[in-house]
């Protein structure tokens, strides 16, 4: 059984069809990297996986259960899927510690003490052990994004979704975020990453998808994907970005 699966997933905004039928199986432990030109639908696909966007038709199946159905408790499904956003979206009125502990405590997964301990642990892991009492506004973009990753990890998700996590960062901060993601991958986390970082896709990805005009135009191992692209649009895309 795949960890998450889509069946003929379609999404339209008004008359404009963004996803034209995507069927994908993502297995436990896989690191799927999604590339594609802007406007191709790759972020929309990612956001359909945890139903931040509701698919127009097709199924999303997570851990064997169809989740885009009425009566599904989407909140409890989302507790198992962490998401990291381009704009970090930390809670500005809360300290770093509160950002990390809010969800586990409110959802009764941990007591405040347990959650605080876990926050310390996560902050150490992302290299920011002394920032627990800082507010997001006092931190750099790279630090904020690392904390956003820690916040998602605090819920111990089975799957992590990354929506262009380094696109809003100054170039010198991209590395620190990618390092955390690389370590997360080495720890065996299942990851779906929409990005423009070709180096990351090549080194960390176990599979690379090229989404173009709402469909998966090509998918392959990173080696084949970058060294022997078949689709002419992919060749064109790679010639521009590499």
């Amino acid at each position: 059984m795949s960890l998450i699966e889509t069946r003929n997933l379609k999404k339209s905004f008004g008359d404009h069809e963004v996803l034209s039928g995507i069927s994908q199986h993502i297995e436990k432990g896989e690191k799927v990297v999604i590339l594609g030109p802007s406007g191709s639908g790759k972020s929309t696909f990612l956001r359909c996986l945890n139903l931040l966007e509701e698919p127009t038709s097709g199924d999303v199946i997570f851990e064997g259960k169809k989740i885009n159905a009425p009566k599904v408790d989407i909140d409890s499904v989302r507790q198992k899927m962490g998401m990291v956003f381009q704009q970090f979206n930390l809670f500005p009125m809360k300290t770093v510690r509160q950002n990390i502990t809010l969800a586990p405590v409110r959802l009764r997964k941990m007591t405040q003490d347990e959650a605080d301990e876990r926050a310390e642990e996560l902050l150490k892991r992302i290299g920011l052990p002394d920032k627990a009492d800082a507010y997001p506004g006092e931190l750099s973009g790279g630090q904020q994004q690392r904390i956003a990753i820690a916040r998602a990890l605090a819920m111990s998700p089975d799957l992590m979704l990354f929506d262009e996590p380094t696109s809003a960062l100054d170039p010198e901060m991209v590395g620190e975020v990618l390092t955390i993601m690389r370590e997360l991958a080495e720890d065996g986390m299942t990851m779906v990453v929409v990005t423009h970082e070709m180096g990351f896709a090549r080194e960390v990805g176990s599979r690379v998808l090229f989404i173009d005009q709402g469909i998966v135009a090509e998918e392959n191992t990173p080696d084949e994907f970058f060294n022997d692209p078949q689709n002419p649009r992919l060749r064109d895309f790679l010639s521009k970005v590499l």
């Binding site: 931040l52 909140d75 989302r78 507790q79 956003f85 704009q87 969800a103 959802l107």
Partner: peptide, 18 residues
């Protein structure tokens, strides 16, 4: 308030109301 705040909360599994 930016829509990303709501999305961040919901993506963590918090309900709309919370």
């Amino acid at each position: 308030i930016p829509i990303g705040q709501m999305e961040a909360g919901r993506s963590l599994g918090l309900s709309y109301r919370t």
